[in-house]
Structures are given as C-alpha cells and as structure tokens.
C-alpha cells in the first residue's frame, strides 16, 4: 500500500522532473554533444583544441574575476550580516537588498556612469585632489570594474543568504558569548561563522557559479579589448562567427568549472 502511494506521489513529481529534464538537462546534453561535432557533423576534438588555443587566458580571467568578486562579497557580507544579526538595523538591511530589484539594464548604465573616466567616482576623488581629471584612471572597461559591478549585483543575494544562515543560529549561543565579553566581531567570527560554515559554503558556490555565467554586466562594463569573460566569448562565437561547436565547448568548460566548485555542495546536499 505504502509502495503504491509512493508511486502515486512520484507521478505528482513527474511534471517538475519532466520540465527539468526536457528544458535543462536535455539541452545541456545536446550542447555537450554539439561540442564534439565539427561544422560538417563529424565527431572531433577540434572545438576543445580551439578553446585551449584561443580561450585559456579568458577562462582563467573569468575564474579570477568570479573568485575576486566572491571574496569581496563574502568579506563585506559576513561583517555586515554579523553586525545586523547582533545589533539589527532594518534600514541598512533593506538598503543592502535594493540590488534585487534593479534591472540589469539599469545596473549596467549606472555602473558605467559611476565608474567611467569622468564618472561620479573619479569626480569625487578628484575633488579631494587624489587624481587629475585631465588624465583620469578608469575602473569601467576593466577587470576591476566588472568585479565591483558583479559584487554589487550579488550583494543583495549574499545578505539574504548569509543573514538567513546567521539568524538560524540560536540567540543563546550569542548570549553566552556576550557574557564572556565578546563584541560583535568576536561573536561573528567565533560563533556565527563556524556555526553557519556549511550554509556559507553552499551560498558561496551558488554565487560563484552565477558570477561565472554572468553576461549582461561584463557586456556593458567590460572593454572590447584583451581578455573577456567566457560568456561574452560564447556570445561572440555564436553571433559573429556562427560557430556553435566552439561556443558549446566553451559552455561545457564553464559548466565544468562551476561543477568543480560545486563538488563540495553536491556532496553535502546529498548526504542527508
């Protein structure tokens, strides 16, 4: 009877399974298979050879930017969420969630205005005499600009996930730490952080993979010269060269990078 009921319930889960398999997994397999095909349809490793020859630098650049942005997000996110968990400040909490609502188109334009050579940031720094606006440095169109924009866009998600993890730590642990004289930073680093380590690892993997796959921000903030993020390469490969094989190979490489970061995550998730 129970087995019958389980089978009945499995049928209820079938629509979800179907959608995921048909619209996520099957296309991925199609892409993966396409990465081993030449334009004439023959099986080949040429696409991967091309990726290794032309895009190794871009792959490293992408991983570097995603890792650097993640480090910024985690550093700020952990300290901020520790403060919010210990003292609470609803206004600050809300302000840090604003990036959730802002459309990518707006983020791209706003970041360009903020980081451009004669943008708001340089204008403010020039006011205190640190730079000369006749020959201003530019954060936009550079790896640092992309990293800062990605960190900005992901900060809201980080605050949600980290604060959620910190809030699931029971108040009694913090009270005990306070009784021993621990301040906000000690409570964050010695109590909240170790007790939320697995949640933070999962959140980090999610943000890292989303940064690896980011497209709109690198397209609007990144310069057209030098190394590019891999999703931009995929876009150019398809749009300007119609080379689906190499584009698919780049996609598979991106997926493998994301999966490499996610091994810990999958292992922890499936342990239960």
């Amino acid at each position: 009877m129970r087995r019958l009921e389980n089978a009945f319930w499995f049928t209820f889960a079938v629509p979800t399974v179907g959608i995921v398999l048909v619209l996520f997994f099957a296309p991925f397999l199609y892409s993966a298979f396409g990465s081993f095909q030449s334009k004439s349809g023959q099986l080949t490793l040429d696409n991967y050879a091309l990726v290794a020859r032309l895009y190794t630098k871009d792959v490293l650049y992408t991983v570097g930017i995603a890792a650097f942005s993640l480090a910024i997000v985690l550093f700020i996110g952990i300290l901020l969420c520790g403060y919010l968990r210990v003292y609470g400040n609803k206004l600050v909490e809300f302000l840090f969630k604003i990036p959730l609502f802002v459309p990518f188109v707006v983020v791209g334009h706003a970041m360009r205005v903020f980081l451009a050579p004669h943008g708001i940031l340089n204008s403010m720094v020039a006011q205190i005499g640190l730079i000369n606006l006749d020959n201003p440095p530019s954060l936009a169109y550079s790896w640092l600009g992309i990293s800062l924009a990605l960190a900005w866009k992901n900060m809201a998600m980080a605050v949600l996930l980290i604060l959620g993890a910190f809030r699931s730590v029971h108040e009694t642990y913090l009270e005990a730490a306070r009784n021993f004289g621990a301040g906000a930073i000690r409570q964050t680093l010695d109590v909240l952080l170790p007790m939320s380590a697995s949640s933070l690892a999962v959140a980090s993997v999610l943000m890292f993979t989303s940064m690896l796959a980011s497209f709109s921000i690198p397209l609007m903030i990144g310069g057209g010269k030098g190394a590019q993020m891999t999703m931009i390469d995929v876009y150019y490969r398809i749009t300007y060269q119609g080379d689906y094989g190499a584009a698919n190979a780049l996609g598979v490489v991106s997926y493998l990078l994301a999966s490499g970061a996610a091994i810990y995550y999958l292992r922890t998730v499936t342990r239960k």
Binding site: F25, L206, A213, M231, L266, V269, T270
Partner: peptide
C-alpha cells in the same frame, strides 16, 4: 542539483 550549476547561455 547539477542543473543549478548550468550557465543559462549554454
């Protein structure tokens, strides 16, 4: 879970 790591552009 593996599909969560899948870049949408792929």
């Amino acid at each position: 879970m593996a599909t969560m790591m899948m870049p949408f552009e792929v």
